[in-house]
Amino acid sequence: MTVSGLRLRAFPPNWGARTAFVALAVYAAYAFAQLDITAGRLAVGMGEAGRFLGRMWPPNFTRWELLLEGLLESLQIAVIASALGILLALPLGLMAARNLAPWPLALVTRGFIAFCRSLHYVIVAILFVKAIGFGALAGVAALTIASMGFIAKLFAEAIEEISMKQVEAIRATGAGLGAVLIYGVLPQVASRFVGFSLYQLDSNLRNSTLVGIVGAGGIGGTLFAAFKRFDYDFVAAILLAIIALIFVAEVISSRIRALLR
């Protein structure tokens, strides 16, 4: 047998993957043409972007009180929505775990969680603004539902991966359901649950800056108003403040995560 023949048998070509790559490249080229994304269009866009960025500099912090007020409201929305979401996700996640909950209950809970997750939180925020009016309450409600769905789903999956041997041992001591959960289940998922919660708080901080754009409270409203009045230097100030907030939150949550390990 020749050397190339040996190579062929050792690393057989994956025709499926090759075809998929070619198809993806062809479709991307087609989509570019469809959307009229041309070099000329791109050059014009870049020029506009340069002018826009020029007007953003230097950032204008003179209206810092307005900025701080919006930022604090966003922070409050994020914290309240995360806390409520986490609290509601605990029982939901338990009820959705197929290894612990009876299957009809798990099925119904999974359906409810999927429903909570099916709409993007901005759409939910719009619905709440229409239903209960402008302001932070709508933002809190929208983000609570999103957080609840997200954490409950991940929590249920974490519970489904636990070792049932540990649960069995606790059950064998004659422990009741509550004690089985506290001793057999919770220790196995607690650190992951805290991880999900921190992650959700992190992303709620980001999300809470956006719900204001649809009128659901927070810095987003201020940002949107500044955009509409072409106050691009104030926009830059707001963006920098948001980035700083997210950055600080990231540092704090990664510290907490490291401590939990």
Binding site: E168, A169, G176, A179, A190
Partner: peptide
Amino acid sequence: FQEYNLVERLSVMENVLSGRLGYVSFWRAW
């Protein structure tokens, strides 16, 4: 049990005391 089936993330003391879970109330256990 064959594979011990201890609750890995609890302390040795908590594992031993979990033998009392059939006797103590939920709150006391928690």
